[in-house]
């Protein structure tokens, strides 16, 4: 049974990687949510015994590879975000849906800020406020997943 759960974690991560590898371009690229990070946050909150900060780092490495940037950028951003997710995991499970959404948004935002800082140091070009759209879309995805019954197993008061 544990095997099965590990399987579901890794299968979903591979699926998210394929989503990331889809030929996004133009407008779709600017609004594309960070699938990998969303999923890793999801599993960190839902099954903290199956994945931890190290998993996030490893996943980040693959995102670095897929985006073709310098190795370690996404890995660092994911590591720090995962740390926050793990630290407040027990509290997060007790949050109601709105609080949870806000918290997830904050996590996505943190990762984007970290990436922004790294990229600015590396001399990348800045793209203005539209840079933060993916966080909003990510939260929207989280909300939709919640509506379809795929939640982190918290907010029992709703039931």
């Amino acid at each position: 049974m544990y095997m099965n759960n590990f399987k579901s974690v890794y299968l979903s991560l591979i699926l998210a990687l394929i989503l990331l590898l889809l030929p996004w371009s133009g407008f779709a690229l600017t609004v594309r949510p960070d699938f990998m990070l969303l999923l890793i946050i999801f599993w960190l909150i839902r099954a903290p015994n199956l994945c931890n900060v190290g998993t996030a780092w490893f996943v980040g490495l693959f995102v670095d590879l897929a985006t073709g940037g310098v190795f370690g950028q996404y890995a660092l951003a994911y590591t720090i975000t995962a740390f926050f997710a793990v630290t407040y995991q027990k509290r997060l499970v007790l949050f109601n849906r709105t609080q949870q959404l806000f918290y997830v948004f904050l996590l996505l935002f943190i990762s984007q800020i970290i990436l922004l800082i790294i990229k600015t140091f590396a001399g990348g070009q800045l793209i203005g406020w539209t840079y933060f759209i993916p966080s909003l879309i990510g939260v929207l995805l989280w909300l939709i997943a919640g509506i379809f019954g795929l939640d982190v197993g918290g907010h029992r008061r709703d039931h």
């Binding site: 370690g72 950028q73 660092l76 590591t79 720090i80 630290t87 790294i118 590396a122």
Partner: peptide, 21 residues
């Protein structure tokens, strides 16, 4: 602990960035 992991993997990422760029 999570903090130890954070420290370890952050340092590893920074090292990777340096080694790569």
């Amino acid at each position: 602990s999570a903090l130890a992991r954070l420290a370890f993997f952050s340092v590893l990422s920074l090292a990777l960035m340096a080694a790569d760029s």
